[in-house]
Design a protein around this nucleic acid. Structure first.
Lengths: 205, 205
DNA sequence: AAGCACTTGTACCGAATTGTACAAAATCAT
DNA sequence: ATGATTTTGTACAATTCGGTACAAGTGCTT
């Protein structure tokens, strides 16, 4: 499989499959089917089979998929068969919550530093982290070789910080600021904005 | 325009347009074009024109769109030309952050209560809110007539809580728990799971 | 007043995505 | 062993989605 040829919409579903598989494994299950997995994640069985088959023939007729094997394959495909270091920029409530979040460890991520530009915050602790100054951020990120950042600064500051992150070599940004970021093509951005997500649902109310 | 006929993918882009328009208005701008708006949000101008034209002819040739008028129309279409009461379930770090979040007010939402099932948390304060017991949640939500909930409980509890929310009349759930929820067709769910979003990007690294 | 530049809304078309259906393989029951 | 059942992977069809192109309206300049 060539990464360039896989549609983004399929890539977007893989983490959902992986998440469901990990839950099944936690329950002690050994195998599953596209039907069962589809019921779990609310996607048609055919869709799941087609998505998975983009990367190889991982199933067995009559039996379905080995949960362990499929999990391993998906982790490899998504490159989370390793641990990625991640930095948090913005030490507000959201940065705080992400720094403490226990849900990264078994999904392939590890927060290694948190930055803020408020001098009065710099130096204070969040859990085990000491908040660092954004002034030194670019060098710190470069020296650690971090490729992933989570951005929880105010919208007004987000574009500037994003530019710095790109300078520092960051290639993936999870943006919590309610603004669309302008970044080079080789940098990926995912957006998390609760108001936007809510507005997407009020349409149907 | 008939709500049933509008593709979900278009509905999903409208809040992004609205967000960009509100930023333009804040800057004092009066009009914009599909080209300019598209540059802001990273979507082609033709796409934006087509999306907007689903709901009427809001632009003017040669001039573009009145920011104020288009904002007003989008707010009406998305039904955020009013304030929706929202409850938070789960008083962990994320529930805490959402309860304090200042970004809801001018986007159509207002947090009115926060619930948790941990007896030792119930009664304590988060900002102006007193954490309430999930045992009384269904009745409280019913009596307040709340239709929207944000779910920040652990994955293991999420499905049970979601069921209760549906019983209470909630029609839209913003789910922060890393699990797919099973809800009736007339209930909408949006998913926010940082690990899933990050995994969607590591594929390209 | 005439020409130019800008911009919308939409018709048309190709690309992307999803659904349907089934042959082939594997397991299970008797 | 044989037939019934389950399930995958994929060919084909249908649908959805996005890009291209342009007529027509608007405002600006000279």
């Amino acid at each position: 499989m060539n990464a360039e040829k896989i549609p983004d919409i399929i890539v977007g579903r893989l983490p959902v499959y992986l998440r469901a598989l990990q839950r099944m494994a936690d329950k002690g299950l050994k195998t599953t089917s596209s039907q069962e997995l589809g019921d779990q994640v609310g996607i048609s069985a055919a869709q799941i089979r087609k998505d998975i088959s983009q990367f190889g023939e991982f199933g067995k007729q009559g039996t379905g998929y080995s949960i362990e094997f499929l999990t391993e394959r998906l982790r490899s495909i998504l490159k989370v068969d390793r641990i990625w270091d991640v930095v948090v920029v913005g030490a507000g409530d959201m940065g705080h919550a992400l720094s403490n979040y226990q849900g990264f460890a078994d999904r392939g991520f590890h927060v290694v530093a948190i930055f803020d530009n408020k001098k009065e915050k710099v130096g204070s602790k969040i859990g085990e982290f000491t908040i660092e100054d954004t002034e030194t951020m670019v060098e710190r990120i470069k020296s650690m070789g971090v490729k992933i950042a989570m951005l929880t600064v105010p919208a007004t500051a987000a574009q500037d910080v994003a530019k710095k992150l790109v300078q520092a070599g960051v290639r993936a940004i999870l943006n919590y600021a309610p603004i669309t970021l302008n970044v080079p093509n080789n940098v990926k951005v995912q957006y998390i904005d609760p108001s936007t997500h809510l507005q997407r649902m009020t349409f149907y109310l």
